[in-house]
Nucleic acid binder design. Structure first.
Length: 190
DNA sequence: CGGCCGATCCACT
DNA sequence: GTGGATCGGCCGA
C-alpha cells in the first residue's frame, strides 16, 4: 500500500511523474491526516533542465535536499505567498524532483474545507500547486521530510483510471527555461 | 548589502 | 488578459 524507496530512486524522473498520477498523498498537519489522489504533476530533470532549481548541479542550502536519495519532500515558497510541494527522486547526488500540482481529496475533507474556506469544493479548488498545499496545510515545516515517515507519505491504492487519460504537455510558468520550456514533462488526469 | 524575480492565485475588466 | 500581493533565495558589487 505505502510506496517505498525503489519507486522514488529510479533515475527516470519523467516516468515517476507520470506514475504519480492516481497515487494517494497523505499529510498530517496540526494532528489531522488529510489526503487524496494526485491529478497533476511535473517532472524537473535536475542538472540538464533549465527550469529546475538544481540546473547545472546548482547546489545551495535550498537545493541541497534535491541531492538526497529519492524519497523526501522539497517544499519552497513561491511569489512570497505559495508553498510548493515536490517529491525528490533519483539516486543520491542526482537532483531530480516532481512538482505535485493538483489532487482530489478523499480523506479529511472537513479540515480541508475549513482551510480553503469553501463549503462545497469542486475539482477547480484543487487544480493548482498553491491550492494543494493550502488545502493540505503544507508549509515550510514539511520541507526535507522522509516519505517513509508518518508526517507525509504516498500510497498506491490501485485506483482505476477508467474512462480517464493521462495527458502530457509543456510545464506551466517556465518560459524562462528556453527550449526546455517545451518539454512534455507535465501530466494531467483528464 | 541592494535589487531582482519567481515551478502562483485571485479579483478585476 | 492584466496586475497586485508578498518574501526568501540568489547574485553581483
Amino acid at each position: 500500500m505505502k510506496i517505498y524507496k525503489d519507486f522514488y530512486t529510479s533515475p527516470d524522473v519523467v516516468q515517476i511523474a507520470r506514475n504519480l498520477i492516481g497515487k494517494y498523498l497523505f499529510v498530517k498537519s496540526e494532528g489531522i491526516v488529510c489526503g487524496g489522489y494526485i491529478t497533476e504533476s511535473e517532472a524537473y530533470q535536475g542538472p540538464t533542465d533549465r527550469a529546475s532549481h538544481a540546473y547545472n548541479n546548482r547546489r545551495t542550502n535550498r537545493t541541497e535536499v534535491m541531492f538526497y536519495e529519492g524519497g523526501r519532500t522539497y517544499v519552497y515558497l513561491c511569489y512570497g505567498i505559495h508553498s510548493m510541494l515536490n517529491i525528490v527522486t533519483g539516486p543520491k547526488d542526482i537532483p531530480h524532483a516532481v512538482l505535485i500540482r493538483g489532487f482530489m481529496p478523499t480523506t479529511g475533507l472537513e479540515a480541508i474545507k475549513k482551510r480553503i474556506g469553501v463549503n462545497n469544493p469542486s475539482a477547480k479548488n484543487f487544480n493548482g500547486p498553491g491550492k494543494l498545499t493550502k488545502a493540505l496545510g503544507i508549509n515550510a515545516v514539511h520541507n526535507n521530510l522522509d516519505l517513509s515517515g508518518n508526517e507525509i507519505w504516498l500510497e498506491d491504492r490501485g485506483l482505476k483510471l477508467k474512462g480517464k487519460k493521462i495527458i502530457a504537455g509543456p510545464r506551466i510558468g517556465v518560459d524562462y527555461a528556453k527550449e526546455d520550456a517545451l518539454l512534455p514533462y507535465r501530466f494531467v488526469l483528464k
